[in-house]
Simulated assay, not measured.
Amino acid sequence: MPDIRVKICGITRPEDVDACASGGATYLGFNFFPKSPRYVAPDSAAALALRAPVGLAKVALVVDADDATLDEIVADVALDMIQLHGRESPERVAQVRARYGLPVMKAIGIAEAADLAKIDSYAPVADQLLIDAKPPKDAVLPGGNGLAFDWRLLQGRKYWQKPWMLAGGLTPENAAEAVRLTGARQVDVASGVESAPGVKDAALIRRFVAAARGEA
Results as ranks from 00 to 15, higher is better:
residue 1 M to E: 11
residue 3 D to C: 14
residue 6 V to A: 09
residue 7 K to P: 03
residue 12 T to G: 08
residue 13 R to L: 12
residue 14 P to K: 03
residue 15 E to D: 15
residue 16 D to E: 14
residue 18 D to C: 14
residue 18 D to N: 14
residue 19 A to K: 04
residue 25 A to M: 02
residue 25 A to K: 02
residue 25 A to D: 02
residue 26 T to Q: 08
residue 30 F to Q: 06
residue 31 N to D: 10
residue 31 N to C: 11
residue 32 F to C: 03
residue 34 P to W: 04
residue 34 P to Q: 11
residue 35 K to I: 01
residue 39 Y to E: 01
residue 41 A to N: 12
residue 43 D to Y: 14
residue 44 S to T: 15
residue 45 A to F: 09
residue 47 A to W: 14
residue 49 A to C: 11
residue 50 L to R: 15
residue 52 A to K: 06
residue 52 A to C: 11
residue 53 P to C: 10
residue 53 P to H: 10
residue 54 V to L: 12
residue 54 V to Y: 15
residue 55 G to W: 12
residue 56 L to Q: 07
residue 56 L to Y: 06
residue 58 K to T: 13
residue 58 K to Q: 07
residue 62 V to K: 04
residue 62 V to A: 00
residue 63 V to D: 01
residue 64 D to R: 13
residue 65 A to H: 05
residue 65 A to T: 09
residue 66 D to V: 05
residue 68 A to E: 13
residue 68 A to T: 11
residue 68 A to F: 15
residue 68 A to R: 15
residue 69 T to G: 15
residue 70 L to Y: 02
residue 72 E to I: 13
residue 73 I to Q: 09
residue 76 D to P: 05
residue 80 D to H: 15
residue 80 D to P: 03
residue 84 L to S: 05
residue 85 H to D: 00
residue 86 G to P: 02
residue 88 E to M: 11
residue 88 E to V: 06
residue 89 S to Q: 00
residue 92 R to K: 12
residue 94 A to T: 08
residue 98 A to N: 02
residue 99 R to G: 07
residue 99 R to F: 05
residue 99 R to P: 01
residue 99 R to D: 10
residue 100 Y to K: 01
residue 101 G to H: 07
residue 102 L to E: 06
residue 102 L to I: 12
residue 103 P to N: 03
residue 104 V to G: 07
residue 105 M to P: 00
residue 105 M to N: 00
residue 106 K to M: 04
residue 108 I to P: 03
residue 109 G to Y: 04
residue 111 A to N: 07
residue 115 D to G: 10
residue 116 L to R: 07
residue 116 L to Y: 09
residue 116 L to S: 07
residue 117 A to P: 08
residue 117 A to G: 15
residue 118 K to L: 12
residue 120 D to T: 09
residue 123 A to M: 07
residue 123 A to N: 04
residue 124 P to S: 14
residue 125 V to G: 02
residue 126 A to V: 06
residue 129 L to V: 10
residue 129 L to A: 07
residue 130 L to T: 06
residue 130 L to V: 12
residue 133 A to S: 12
residue 136 P to H: 14
residue 136 P to L: 13
residue 136 P to V: 11
residue 138 D to P: 00
residue 138 D to W: 09
residue 139 A to Y: 13
residue 141 L to W: 04
residue 141 L to P: 04
residue 142 P to K: 12
residue 144 G to H: 00
residue 145 N to G: 05
residue 146 G to W: 04
residue 147 L to A: 13
residue 147 L to R: 09
residue 150 D to R: 13
residue 151 W to Q: 05
residue 152 R to E: 14
residue 155 Q to K: 15
residue 156 G to A: 13
residue 161 Q to R: 15
residue 162 K to T: 09
residue 163 P to M: 09
residue 164 W to Y: 03
residue 165 M to N: 04
residue 166 L to R: 08
residue 166 L to A: 11
residue 169 G to E: 03
residue 172 P to S: 02
residue 174 N to F: 11
residue 175 A to Y: 00
residue 178 A to F: 00
residue 179 V to M: 11
residue 181 L to V: 13
residue 182 T to D: 03
residue 185 R to C: 05
residue 185 R to M: 08
residue 190 A to M: 04
residue 192 G to S: 08
residue 193 V to H: 03
residue 194 E to I: 05
residue 197 P to W: 07
residue 199 V to G: 02
residue 201 D to C: 06
residue 201 D to W: 02
residue 204 L to H: 07
residue 204 L to C: 01
residue 204 L to A: 09
residue 207 R to G: 04
residue 207 R to S: 09
residue 210 A to L: 02
residue 210 A to T: 01
residue 211 A to F: 00
residue 212 A to I: 08
residue 216 A to Q: 10
residue 216 A to C: 12
